[in-house]
Design a protein around this nucleic acid. Structure first.
Length: 104
DNA sequence: GCTTTGACACTAA
DNA sequence: CTTAGTGCCAAAG
């Protein structure tokens, strides 16, 4: 049984429309959690990456962040998925992040 | 149940 | 623009 913390997080993840993304900070504020780090921890424990598109979550500064830890190989797949959604990524950075962010 | 770790963010230099 | 330092919270050891 996952913590309520994660349940809320997963719900928010699923609420993100296709082609849109969000940041750890935004999710944190939505969950009323001051620290964005906690979000990353929860996603790290993602029980079902298929059901919960954690690849739509990026850092506030426009970097991709991580995917299953800091494994470079997984991060590449994350980028690949984002690009498939229509997100433009250049040098591990999201170019038009403001245009892609999900407006809550 | 305390200590360490980490998929982050912000400020200062 | 980059680098360094600090804060922050939850999960794992």
């Amino acid at each position: 049984m996952a913590a309520l913390f994660q349940q809320e997080l997963y719900l928010l993840l699923q609420s993100i429309p296709k082609g849109k993304i969000t940041t750890y900070k935004i999710l944190a504020q939505k969950l009323n959690v001051p620290s964005a780090r906690a979000i990353g921890q929860a996603l790290k424990h993602n029980p079902d990456p298929i059901k919960y598109p954690c690849y739509r979550v990026v850092k506030s500064n426009g970097e991709i962040g991580g995917y299953y830890g800091n494994n470079h190989w997984f991060i590449q797949e994350k980028i690949k998925k984002l690009e498939a959604e229509g997100i433009v990524i250049k040098d591990c950075r999201i170019q038009n992040i403001k245009n892609c962010l999900h407006n809550y």
